[in-house]
């Protein structure tokens, strides 16, 4: 069986020539960027199913199940409202302290869970990576999508918090209003930014698992540097370089956009400029992050 027509036909050819002649493609090499995007697009159903499965499996082993999707951010917000809003009284420069903190913590929690999940995307799915061949970018994307799916019911809770605190504590008749719809593009931009940042962290997390231990501390500093529970403007009222950096760094921008949508705060008045900054951060981070992730495509799951 070793001597037949094909064997004679390939005699004297190099392996690369044989591969070329019979239309074989090389394994273990990174596909071109365009080809990669195309194959990713054909797996969009795969991403959605993975995201849904992950969102469903999250609280599978608890009695309350998916109620935790709502309970978790609510309790998280309640703790911060209690400590920072009521006990430490960092409410200077805010109109609605509860609304301010609730919007901040809900949005930041989405960002935090998204990038943490993305950083673990490859190690967590090592079984999949080691047995099936698909564009690996599916994993960080579906991980952030799962967080988005869990954020949607939480947004309703967030709206409830703002409504109650505005109407019953501040007696503002202007709530709710059409401006609330801006929360949709605000979340969309934050989703794009989180996915981009998630790509970078997914590559780092796959290569240096130590990053996963380091990440929580960075995110905790990020939380205080982004004005999640207090107004940056109020504490850096003098302006200057530091205030500019603090106000225009992406996470602070997205928190501000969400607050522009949901609240009527002096530090977060409607600003077209800030929306453009948010759009720029989102697009640039998503594209750069994607390319950074793609560059290591052939190596994921190798060790």
């Amino acid at each position: 069986m070793t001597t037949d027509a094909t064997n004679d036909a390939t005699a004297g050819m190099t392996p690369a020539e044989i591969a070329e002649r019979y239309g074989l493609h090389q394994m273990g090499v990174r596909p071109g960027l365009r080809e990669y995007v195309r194959s990713l697009w054909t797996r969009r159903d795969f991403m959605l199913v993975l995201a849904r499965s992950r969102a469903e499996a999250e609280n599978q082993n608890t009695y309350l199940g998916r109620v935790w999707d709502i309970l978790n951010p609510t309790l998280n917000a309640a703790v911060y409202v209690l400590i920072f809003g009521l006990l430490l009284k960092t409410r200077d420069g805010m109109t609605n302290v509860i609304g301010f903190i609730v919007v901040g913590t809900f949005m930041y929690k989405f960002f935090q869970d998204s990038v943490t999940g993305a950083a673990r995307a490859i190690p967590r799915n090592l079984n999949l990576v080691r047995s099936l061949h698909f564009p690996r970018a599916v994993l960080p994307i579906s991980s952030v999508l799962a967080e988005l799916a869990m954020l949607l019911p939480a947004l309703a809770v967030m709206a409830g918090f703002v409504l109650v605190s505005d109407r019953w504590m501040l007696h503002l008749d202007s709530t709710p209003n059409w401006r609330w719809l801006l929360i949709v593009p605000a979340v969309l931009l934050l989703f794009m930014f989180s996915t981009g940042a998630g790509f970078v962290l997914a590559r780092l997390g796959a290569r240096w698992p130590d990053v996963l231990n380091f990440l929580p501390f960075v995110l905790r500093i990020g939380m205080y540097a982004s004005g999640v529970i207090f107004s940056i403007d109020h504490y850096l009222a003098g302006g200057g370089v530091l205030a500019t950096i603090m106000n225009y760094q992406p996470v602070a921008v997205y928190l501000n956009l969400a607050r522009q949508a949901m609240l009527d705060e002096p530090s977060a008045q409607l600003s077209g400029e800030l929306w453009l900054v948010g759009l720029a951060w989102a697009v640039v981070t998503l594209v750069v992050g994607f390319v950074i992730f793609w560059r290591d495509e052939a190596r994921y799951g190798r060790d």
Binding site: P15, L24, M27, G28, R130, H133, A298, R299
Partner: peptide
């Protein structure tokens, strides 16, 4: 062969 790990040297071609 399955393209799941990258060769450190040499190459694999598959249909």
């Amino acid at each position: 062969l399955a393209g799941l790990i990258q060769p450190s040297q040499g190459s694999v071609y598959v249909a």
